[in-house]
Write a protein that binds this DNA or RNA. Sequence first.
DNA 1: CGTACTTTTGAATCGCATCAAATCTGGTGG
DNA 2: CCACCAGATTTGATGCGATTCAAAAGTACG
Lengths: 220, 220
Amino acid sequence: MALHRYDRDHMPPDKSALNWEELTFSQPSAALIPESLRALSKVVELAAGETLFRIGDPVGHAFLVFSGEASLIRRDRQGGEVILQRSRGGFIAEASLDSSAYHCDAVSTKPGTLLLFPAAAFRNALEEDALFRKGWQSLLAREVRKLRAQCERLNLHSAASRIAHYIESEGVDGVVTLAQSRKAWAAELGLTHEALYRALRRIQDAEMLAVQGNRIASVP
Amino acid sequence: MALHRYDRDHMPPDKSALNWEELTFSQPSAALIPESLRALSKVVELAAGETLFRIGDPVGHAFLVFSGEASLIRRDRQGGEVILQRSRGGFIAEASLDSSAYHCDAVSTKPGTLLLFPAAAFRNALEEDALFRKGWQSLLAREVRKLRAQCERLNLHSAASRIAHYIESEGVDGVVTLAQSRKAWAAELGLTHEALYRALRRIQDAEMLAVQGNRIASVP
DNA sequence: CGTACTTTTGAATCGCATCAAATCTGGTGG
DNA sequence: CCACCAGATTTGATGCGATTCAAAAGTACG
């Protein structure tokens, strides 16, 4: 059983008492989890490359990535790996809550911290707690909206239009303040960091963009 | 008010009585809508380029695209249009159900048919009807999973890897049966149709892929 | 102070977009 | 039934832009 090694709490004492203040700040998705459900959570520290579950395993937990990175992976017959989802924060494999068994593998692709909630208790809390349920619904709805926007963006074929799209969809009134490095931004835009740097430079030189540190504004 | 022209039913009689059998077949998302809510729906036929709502309008309806295409659009100061979401079937602007006003424009980008549900009744049905609520939640969760997979796919930089990813994530056991034209598939993969045709040809010639009409299988 | 990572620029290459055009296909109407 | 049309499919030639490999300079952190 893939999760066996996490069934006991092997955290140092100060870590097992999770700081929910900090968590809900960095992961807004966690803010709506009711007290009763928090009490049932397990905190797990992972190195890179550890397995969370394998395809076919019964669905036992809901997973929340607190830090690091976890990925859902399927292997093809050529031996290659296909990444279905990468999570650098927030829930992973939400859709599995409905199923009884996992349809792919999950591994930690970067070292970090995970929160585990028993699936039955999670489903039950969604059923019983109207506030949690409402929050969960709008969380999913927001996620859908955000992902749709990202798909539209990735369908654009030039770096410049992806940047413009990002500013329009993620920013306010033509201005975004990046909360991440440009290298990470490049990855989110589906570009190499070099391509992003060069595109930014070009657009700045054309005076279509104003960049001040992490504040990036489109010039009308 | 953008929706004014749809407030009366200007459909021919045979269209105003919507065929729910047909609808739930082509749009599984509609299958879970309870009878009481269906009774309140309005059917709207749209030409291309009609406005559903504008940014700032109060949220009055939930929209389900039955046929054709509707898009959420935001305009930037250069006069360009940025597509936030395109829907060729299923709900559009789900996330707006939570808000009181729309955060973007919506227009029909292809002629087709829409279903409108009063937002208040929709929210109420979600609250009252446990089955509808459960269905809605797993609908959203599935959508999130699907969109995450598509984002991962679009982050791949070659046509061949996108095809492989599609087969692994959408297919079963390395086989997909396309329900759409290759041109439409190309658009979903973020490629031009020419690039898709050529990539398919290359992979077939390398004997990594078996194509029989709409049945496409990866060769181990 | 050194190490790891990000930021930045350069040069060469490759793959996709683009424009063009021919063929094939399904469906419509004469 | 055939002519015809719109759209999908397929192949070709060309150019551009992103990737890739390489390397230098800047920056954060212990």
